[in-house]
């Protein structure tokens, strides 16, 4: 028997495909709600701009971040030096731009570290429950009773004053919130009725995990990650400010601020203190706004 094609059937087929493409998952729903949140979209745009700057810093400036110019120390804002120059005559705009690379890169890597360890610990605790759950969560509680900044300082100190140790220190010291979020997310996803239904209908573990558990537990994890990147950026600048982590001459916002502090009493040197801090404030503001938006989008009941 050959298949009969009528225009009406083609149309129905197209509709079906279109519908399948726009299958409603927690993701597409969340994205639709997020798009309506103007503030969050502004945050997203700012983050994209920062990302572009961090990836291609040389497109935005013709100076080098190490070149010192002793003929123009502490230059005010001008067309040549958009944000003025510092105590060694280096262009502040250029240094702020190159610093984005270090801050964003390390914050992403450190969040990846905590997401990995937190994810593994959290999901083991949630899957196996019982003793494993008790032991892991006890450990997390203990880790959490050391204030995060202090734990990061001790770790960074112990691992040596390098970029890698900074990343690891931040990553390890922020494991607890990720472990908790992942555990809670997996636990809720595990108990949802549609997971049981799907299981009864004969779905295998892979289907359960990829089609149900992951999409339905990602929301809170993404929200936590967004806030986590903002927190990591603040922490990196704090640690660099006290001389842990990124070492000069590589520019970093925190260490630029620590240079600026020495010339704080000098009225004309204000760009050295104000500009790098503004760079931190804007990106962490954008991430927090986006995080708020994502939380409202994934969890509309709080709105």
């Amino acid at each position: 028997m050959s298949k009969i094609h009528t225009p009406a059937m083609d149309k129905a087929e197209q509709k079906r495909q279109k519908f399948q493409k726009r299958r409603s998952t927690p993701f597409t729903d969340g994205w639709r709600r997020l798009k309506k949140n103007k503030l969050a979209m502004v945050g997203l745009v700012i983050i994209i701009v920062y990302a572009v700057i961090a990836i291609f810093p040389s497109l935005f400036t013709s100076y080098s971040y190490v070149t010192q110019d002793y003929t123009s120390l502490f230059a005010p804002l001008s067309r040549d030096h958009l944000f003025g120059t510092d105590n060694l005559g280096r262009d502040i705009f250029t240094r702020v731009i190159y610093a984005a690379r270090a801050s964003l890169g390390i914050s992403l890597l450190s969040v990846a570290v905590s997401l990995f360890f937190g994810g593994v610990l959290g999901s083991i605790a949630a899957f196996y429950g019982g003793k494993a759950d008790d032991i892991i969560m006890r450990f997390i509680d203990i880790l959490q009773s050391i204030p995060g900044t202090l734990l990061a300082i001790t770790l960074a100190m112990a691992l040596g004053k390098t970029v890698v140790s900074l990343m690891l220190a931040l990553g390890i010291s922020t494991i607890p919130p990720y472990a908790k979020v992942v555990r809670a997310a997996v636990l809720t996803a595990k108990d949802r009725q549609f997971v049981e239904v799907s299981k009864c209908l004969g779905a295998n573990d892979r289907w359960l995990i990829t089609r149900h558990m992951i999409p339905n537990s990602l929301g809170p994890i993404i929200v936590q990650t967004t806030f986590g990147i903002a927190a990591a950026i603040l922490m990196i600048s704090s640690l660099s400010y006290i001389g842990l982590g990124i070492q000069p001459p590589t520019p970093e916002w925190g260490s630029m601020l620590s240079d600026g502090k020495q010339f704080l009493q000098m009225g004309t040197a204000w760009p050295m203190t104000v500009i790098p801090g503004l760079a931190i404030l804007i990106v962490s503001f954008a991430l927090n706004v986006l995080g708020d938006g994502l939380r409202d989008a994934f969890d509309p009941r709080l709105k």
Partner: peptide, 17 residues
């Protein structure tokens, strides 16, 4: 929101300035 996003040591420097 600004308060959550601001690095507190930078805020301290600004206050001094």
């Amino acid at each position: 929101l600004v308060g959550v996003s601001i690095p507190n040591f930078w805020f301290a420097l600004l206050l001094i300035l």
